[in-house]
């Protein structure tokens, strides 16, 4: 469970944050309508995940633990993530205004994206070292990106289909997510970790 390969398989496939652990579904359903914004969102989430797991590890190990302040873990992690999201927002707004507009409200919402808080909390709970923590953040981001790209391709195709009026739009996205999740859980459930 400690080597990096096992962490990668776990983070990307077996314990995929979106489809197996159901974390971060809000941005998943909100931004996966087209590939461009899905890719932008994934890049932003991955960036924040890596930075957040780095910063969270440093703060937890060198500040909270020595001072016996571990009861502040959740609050300090939330502050770290919020600060990082602000940073990403500045960068995207400056360098890619169209992407900024297409992400819309979902960009500030990364702050409350449970997938990111999930990564840093899991890092602490699984007692990962520095390299493992950062790598777990990275692979979780890869898994997020993969599912976002699959889902956006599916939704672009589903857009042109004649779906019954009663399930059009968001309900239909939940239908797709259900089946995708069934595919993921069943297929990757077999890989021993």
């Amino acid at each position: 469970m400690d080597n990096l390969f096992a962490i990668a398989i776990n983070g990307i496939f077996v314990k995929n944050f979106l489809l197996v652990q159901f974390l971060g579904l809000c941005s998943f359903l909100g931004v996966s309508k087209e590939t461009k914004s899905a890719a932008g969102m994934s890049a932003a989430v991955m960036f924040v995940m890596i930075l957040a797991s780095t910063a969270a590890f440093l703060i937890f190990t060198y500040l909270l633990q020595p001072l016996g302040l571990t009861f502040l873990t959740t609050i300090s992690f939330i502050i770290i993530i919020a600060a990082l999201v602000q940073l990403v927002e500045f960068i995207i707004r400056k360098h890619s205004p169209p992407l900024y507009r297409s992400l819309g409200i979902y960009l500030p919402l990364i702050t409350t994206n449970c997938a990111i808080l999930g990564v840093v909390v899991l890092n602490v709970r699984l007692e990962y070292g520095f390299l493992q923590s950062v790598f777990y953040g990275f692979t979780a981001g890869i898994g997020y990106t993969m599912v976002m790209l699959l889902m956006s391709a599916i939704r672009e195709r589903v857009n042109v289909l004649d779906v019954p009026a009663s399930v059009q739009g968001l309900p239909h996205a939940f239908f797709i997510t259900t089946l995708l999740s069934m595919a993921f859980v069943n297929f990757f459930g077999v890989i021993p970790t």
Binding site: V158, L161, V163, P164, H172, L179, A183
Partner: peptide, 10 residues
Amino acid sequence: AFGGLGSTLF
């Protein structure tokens, strides 16, 4: 729910 014949995703 996916649109019937020819539209099925799965």
